[in-house]
């Protein structure tokens, strides 16, 4: 049986002013799996990721052409509710960016946005999210303390918990471990593997070992183009494109 496709882009172009940042990208992201996007710096992998929840809209002078579909719905169609879209597509950033609020309030914020204000329900859902992000045991007795007092790795898992709290279908991760030490990186990677049964995960990384360890599908990009996409093991062992082979064998990038 063919797996369900959660995100599909079709001939998707994106321009920053005159700069053609994404060139006719057509990519399918299977549901409930981990898709890694790799490629050298500036290849457009983060831009592609941020097209899925329209975070690029915040940058002045951005134009797009083509389609991006989430579960079959065109996210760039006129009249799309971007706020609603982002509730379905959560995001974790390169640098952990908890709010300068308490640990509890960080996770509860998305729920409050949805109008959840009953203390008992908030507490239950905050706990569930923190457990899923494998952070509960470390913070359960200091939920009222500032999130900024946590270590870098804990902060990043808190940001993951914050994104999970609103039950998104997709979680986008933009180099989620690049600012973390190896131990914290390993924990985030384990977490990604645990989460894929519930969520569709897209990870941008420039760490190829990481892509090989955690992803089911890998997409390789260069200068705005999607060069090759395929099952992770075969892409790393039998790349079809010369460019991919050169990149994964470390000949450039």
């Amino acid at each position: 049986m063919k797996p369900e496709i959660r995100i599909r882009t079709h001939d998707f172009d994106l321009f920053y002013g005159a700069h053609h940042a994404l060139k006719s990208v057509s990519l399918e992201v299977p549901a409930n799996s981990v898709t890694a996007i790799i490629g050298p710096s500036g290849c457009g992998k983060s831009t592609l990721l941020r097209s899925f929840n329209r975070m690029n809209d915040l940058i002045p002078g951005v134009r797009v052409r083509g389609r991006v579909e989430l579960s079959g719905l065109d996210v760039y169609a006129p009249g799309t509710d971007v706020v609603e879209l982002r509730r379905h597509v959560g995001m974790v950033f390169q640098r952990a960016n908890p709010f300068p609020k308490s640990i509890f309030e960080n996770v509860a914020y998305g729920l409050r946005l949805l109008g959840v204000n009953r203390r008992a329900e908030l507490e239950a859902r905050v706990e569930t999210s923190l457990r899923r992000a494998a952070l509960w045991e470390e913070v359960r007795d200091r939920l009222g303390r500032s999130a900024l007092a946590l270590s870098g790795g804990q902060q990043q898992r808190l940001c993951i918990a914050r994104a999970l709290a609103v039950e998104p279908e997709v979680v986008l991760m933009d180099e989620p471990a690049s600012a973390l030490d190896p131990t914290a990186t390993a924990r985030v990677e384990e977490l990604v593997l645990e989460l894929k049964s519930r969520y569709t995960i897209v990870v941008v990384t420039h760490n190829m070992q990481q892509a090989a360890r955690i992803s089911d599908t890998t997409a390789f990009m260069m200068v705005g183009e999607l060069v090759e996409v395929g099952e992770t093991r075969s892409l790393f062992t039998r790349p079809r494109q010369k460019l991919t082979e050169d990149y994964i064998t470390g000949r450039f990038g």
Binding site: N53, M55, L58, V83, E84, L85, R86, R87, G90, M91, F93, R95, N97, P98, F99, P100, Y109, G110, L113, L114, C159, R162, A163, V166
Partner: peptide
């Protein structure tokens, strides 16, 4: 990054 975090959670 604070603004992005909130917007990405679906905050208007």
């Amino acid at each position: 990054s604070y603004r992005e975090a909130a917007l990405a959670l679906g905050a208007p």
